[in-house]
Each structure stands twice: as structure tokens, then as C-alpha cells.
């Protein structure tokens, strides 16, 4: 479909799109070029191409932000959250999509309502409760918090995948004598596995990037996440922006690579979960 044939309009359209492209990429380009520059040259001109490549920005960032430890913490936390969200979420999404129980509507609306609850509404009692139970600095406890916060999103997204599965498939399996549990694990799960992969990716991204809950619940140096250790580094050594940008790039790089490889999945998942309901 072409809305307009005029050549001038088309040129103007691409010019505007390109302008937006530059605006979007400008700060990200600054991140990349300044990550290899010595602090003195950044102060001189943050826009200039690096004169000498300071690769040691990365090694210093790695040691100062203790990424060896904190990236591992982030990976463990993300992994735990992915497993928890995908297992509990797919069970719930199946039941809600197929309206297997009478209260499906109430549960759906309850879950929708919690997606809009401000974190501050439950953060304070949760923090002091966890402190009393000795659950501060505990990755499993934080992954449970993440699961509570993001599983409604996952349920709504997976629900649309379950809806797309033809009912006859389920009925046929039941007639063949499969139990409900077998229908779910052997018939439904394999079909909706692309949806589960999307959810896993997005939940992984969210937990890798999350700041407020991580900074509140994971305070001890050996339990904190990469984002929090980056935040602390950039507060402490605020003069060496080369090192800070290098640290930022280290944390962002795995995310960007995954995004480039699986762009469609990321975009459809993030956009779909909040719109389609």
C-alpha cells in the first residue's frame, strides 16, 4: 500500500525518519566512542573520535565494578526469575485462556490490576518483613518478588498463545485417554513454546535491567547485581567517564547482541504484552 505517490513527500518522509534515527542513536554513539577514550580527552571533546584506544578502561571497569561477581549474580537472578515466571505463568495462562475455572474472570482482572500497582505500595512492608526473616541479600527471595511483579504480564502474553491452539487438539488427546496434566505438558506446552521463549527473553531482560528492587533488596557487595554495581561505580569514580562508559557497555553488550539476533521476538513481546491484554 502506498498512501502517497509524490516523490517530494517521500523524500521528506525519509528525511524525518533519518532525523529521528540520529536523535535516537546520538547518546548511544556517545556511550560507545567514549568507552575507549581517556578521561582527559572526554573532558576536551566528548564528540571526537578517540585518538588513542584505551582498552584498559574495560579492564579497570571490570575490576572496579566487580563484574566477575555481579554479572554472575545478575545471570543467576535472571535465570531463577525466568524459570519461576515461565513455570507458574504458563500454568495460569492455560487455565485462564481456556476458562477452565469459574473464577477465571476475577483472577484475570485481579492480575491486571496488580500490573498497575506502584512498587511503593508494597515495597516498605515487604522490605521490613524480609529483613525480619533474613531474606535481604537473598537472590531467591528477589526472584520471587520479580515473579510476582512480572508474572501478570507473562500470563497475559502467554494467554494469547494458548488461545491460538485449536480446542480439537485438546479434546482428541483427552478422548485418547490422556490425563489433564498430560494434555497440558505433552500437547499444549510444545505448541506454545515460542510464546514461552518470548516471555523468557523479556523477563530475562527485565530482571537484568531492574534497578529499584535490586538496589533495595541486594545491598551486600557479594550479592548485588551488575546494574547496581554499575550505579555505585558511576557514583564513586565520577571523574573517569571513560571507565564509567566502558562499564556501561559491558553491562549493555549482552543485551544488545541478543536484541539484534532476536529483534522481532523482543519487540512483539514487549509491545504485545501491554497492548493485547
Amino acid at each position: 500500500m502506498r498512501l502517497i505517490e509524490s516523490r517530494a513527500t517521500l523524500v521528506l518522509t525519509y528525511a524525518l525518519l533519518a532525523l529521528l534515527l540520529v536523535v535516537t542513536l546520538f547518546p548511544i554513539a556517545l556511550l560507545v566512542i567514549n568507552s575507549v577514550k581517556p578521561a582527559a580527552q572526554i573532558v576536551q571533546n566528548p564528540l571526537a573520535w578517540p585518538e588513542a584506544f584505551r582498552w584498559d578502561n574495560f579492564t579497570r571497569a571490570w575490576t572496579d565494578a566487580r563484574f566477575g561477581q555481579t554479572m554472575l549474580n545478575s545471570a543467576v537472578l535472571s535465570g531463577l526469575t525466568i524459570v519461576l515466571v515461565c513455570t507458574t505463568g504458563s500454568l495460569t495462562a492455560y487455565v485462564l485462556a481456556r476458562r477452565k475455572i469459574k473464577s477465571w474472570k476475577i483472577i484475570t482482572f485481579y492480575l491486571l490490576a496488580t500490573t498497575t500497582a506502584p512498587i511503593q505500595l508494597f515495597l516498605f512492608p515487604l522490605y521490613f518483613g524480609f529483613a525480619k526473616l533474613g531474606l535481604i541479600n537473598n537472590a531467591v527471595a528477589v526472584s520471587v518478588v520479580y515473579t510476582a511483579v512480572w508474572s501478570p504480564f507473562a500470563v497475559m502474553l502467554l494467554r494469547t498463545y494458548f488461545l491460538a491452539v485449536p480446542k480439537e487438539l485438546e479434546e482428541a488427546a483427552l478422548i485418547d485417554g490422556a490425563s489433564h496434566w498430560q494434555v497440558f505438558t505433552k500437547v499444549m506446552l510444545p505448541i506454545v513454546s515460542p510464546g514461552i521463549l518470548t516471555v523468557a527473553l523479556i523477563i530475562g531482560l527485565y530482571s537484568w535491567n531492574e534497578f529499584l528492587i535490586a538496589t533495595t533488596f541486594l545491598q551486600r557487595a557479594d550479592t548485588t547485581t551488575a546494574i547496581v554495581s554499575f550505579f555505585l561505580l558511576s557514583g564513586q569514580y565520577s571523574s573517569d567517564w571513560g571507565e564509567i562508559m566502558a562499564a556501561a557497555l559491558i553491562v549493555v553488550l549482552p543485551v544488545i547482541i541478543l536484541f539484534i539476533l532476536l529483534q522481532r521476538r523482543f519487540i512483539e513481546g514487549m509491545a504485545g504484552g501491554s497492548v493485547k491484554g
Binding site: 546494574i227 549493555v252 544488545i256 536484541f259
Partner: peptide
Amino acid sequence: IYFLPMIIATAI
């Protein structure tokens, strides 16, 4: 490209 900033952590 327009979507790219959405996947980078707010702290960064």
C-alpha cells in the same frame, strides 16, 4: 533502532 533505547537499563 527506535526501539533500541527501551532495552537498555534506565540506570545506564
